[in-house]
Amino acid sequence: MSFAVYDPRGVPSPSASPLAKRPPKLAGLRIGVLDNGKEQADVLLSRAAQLLKEDGVTAHFDAKPSFSRVAPSEVIERLSNYDIAITGLGG
């Protein structure tokens, strides 16, 4: 006779975080650009915004005070007013 043995400890399984639905195209959208403050993150993000502008995307720049902390709630709220977002860091 065989039987299955289950490990009761399991592994961390936080509730799944929802992902936003993707738009079919970029033209006419507004993008929130979140600079995390690491060195040259602004250069990288600005270049991305510049190229996306050619796709008809309007960029709105924002930043957070520290790259080692999550963005303050007011920054997330501001970025939530846009259609899409890009963020990043360097190192």
Binding site: S17, P18, L19, A20, K21, R22, P23, G32, L34, N36, A41, L44, L45, A48, K64, F67, S68, R69, V70, A71, I76, L79, S80, Y82, D83, I84, A85, I86, T87, G88, L89, G90, G91
Partner: peptide, 25 residues
């Protein structure tokens, strides 16, 4: 980690978000 958490916060508000990340991370 914080960049990803920011992105997830935005995704949770319906904002598709892409993250630029150095590959060492």
């Amino acid at each position: 980690s914080c960049c990803m958490r920011d992105a997830v916060a935005l995704e949770g508000r319906g904002i598709p978000t892409v993250i630029l990340v150095n590959d060492v991370f």
